[in-house]
Simulated assay, not measured.
Amino acid sequence: MAEYNVHLTACRQIAKGTMAFHFEKPVGFSHKPGQAIDLILPGHQTGTRSSDTRHTFSIVTAPEEDELVVATRIGESVFKHALCALPIGTEVQINGPFGSFTLPKNTERTSVLIAGGIGITPFMSILRHAAQQQTLQQLILLYSNHYPEDAAFLEELQQLERQNQRFQLMATMTDMEHSTQSWDGATQIIDSDWIKQVVTGLDNPAFYVSGPPALVEAMRQTLTMSGIDEDNVRSETFYGY
């Protein structure tokens, strides 16, 4: 796995309690949509595995883009506080890319992407790449959040849907009682009935689930209840949120 030193070029809030961090893209760096990197903060040895010094992040940017972006919920961890405190221009180390949370090469097979909260990040790279390359694969994204304020990249996803006729966004907000924004879309949880609706007429779709541990486990159970073979389901769990 390759190691690179890069500089922080920007950071911005992308949803309530959620930040995106922009870094230089190293010369020769190449990744597949859906892959990840380890980010190591300055002043820490490469060999340490402590969660206070390094963290794994899915890459938000598509391979064609000229920067690397990661995004995270800002919790109470030592790492998150240190990351947020980095001045623009700080040099950090990244290791990667790595991971196999990538779409199948067979573009005739529909991929159903299921994301909860910050679990959207690996799908952003996939969906940006699909829109830029106008790939032939049909993509359906079920994206669940409590309310719109919480939903990272929601406006961009709506724009990507307009750009790519083979991409369908199905976003749902499950706690609108506590929202300060309006929402005229779905408000239901992602349950087996909804899954069955989504897959009706699809020929052997592949499923990808990404989010916090409880959501991933619940979605795997829901897919099983919906009659989906577990061999057709891949998942990526986000810890520490």
Rank of each mutant, 00 (worst) to 15 (best):
E177K: 14
Q188E: 15
L215T: 02
P104C: 11
R54N: 04
T121W: 04
D191C: 13
P33A: 15
M225C: 09
S51Q: 06
G43R: 00
F29D: 09
Q197P: 11
D184M: 08
A15N: 06
I14R: 01
W194H: 07
H22G: 00
M124F: 02
R162N: 10
Q138P: 12
R220I: 10
T135H: 11
P104R: 13
T72L: 06
S77H: 05
P97G: 00
E3H: 07
W183Y: 09
D193M: 02
T46W: 12
E3S: 09
D231M: 08
V69P: 02
G99W: 06
D229M: 08
D231T: 14
E67V: 11
G99A: 08
R49F: 14
Q158M: 11
V78Y: 03
W183K: 10
L103W: 03
S77E: 13
H22L: 09
Y4I: 07
I118G: 00
I195P: 09
Q138A: 08
L154H: 11
A130G: 10
L83G: 07
A131D: 06
M170W: 10
L157W: 07
F57M: 02
L8W: 12
E67M: 11
N95W: 04
T222E: 04
L113R: 01
G119F: 05
Q132I: 10
G240V: 14
P213R: 07
W194G: 02
A71R: 03
P42F: 03
A10L: 02
A85C: 09
E67A: 12
H55I: 12
R128E: 04
T172M: 08
D191H: 14
G211S: 12
Q221L: 14
T90Y: 01
A10W: 07
N5A: 13
T200R: 12
A15F: 06
P213Y: 08
P26A: 02
K196D: 08
T135D: 12
I120W: 01
F207T: 03
T56S: 11
S235L: 01
D150I: 04
G96V: 01
L154D: 03
A62Q: 10
L83C: 05
F21R: 03
I14A: 01
M1G: 12
I118D: 04
H129G: 00
F57K: 00
S50D: 13
E65D: 15
L154P: 11
L68S: 02
V70Q: 01
D184S: 15
I14L: 01
A115G: 01
N106F: 05
I114Y: 01
L169V: 09
N145Y: 06
F238G: 02
Q159S: 14
I140M: 10
N106W: 05
S192N: 11
C11T: 13
F79G: 05
I228F: 05
A62I: 12
A10Q: 14
A82H: 07
D66C: 07
L86N: 08
Y4A: 06
N164M: 07
V78W: 01
E236K: 01
E161S: 12
L215N: 04
E236P: 01
E67H: 13
G119S: 04
G117F: 04
L141E: 08
F23C: 08
A2G: 13
M124V: 14
G227P: 04
T110C: 13
L136E: 15
I94E: 03
I40R: 15
S58A: 14
L68H: 03
G240C: 10
A131R: 06
S210Y: 02
G75E: 14
Q159N: 15
L103D: 02
H22K: 09
Q93H: 07
Q181C: 05
R166Q: 15
A131E: 09
T18N: 07
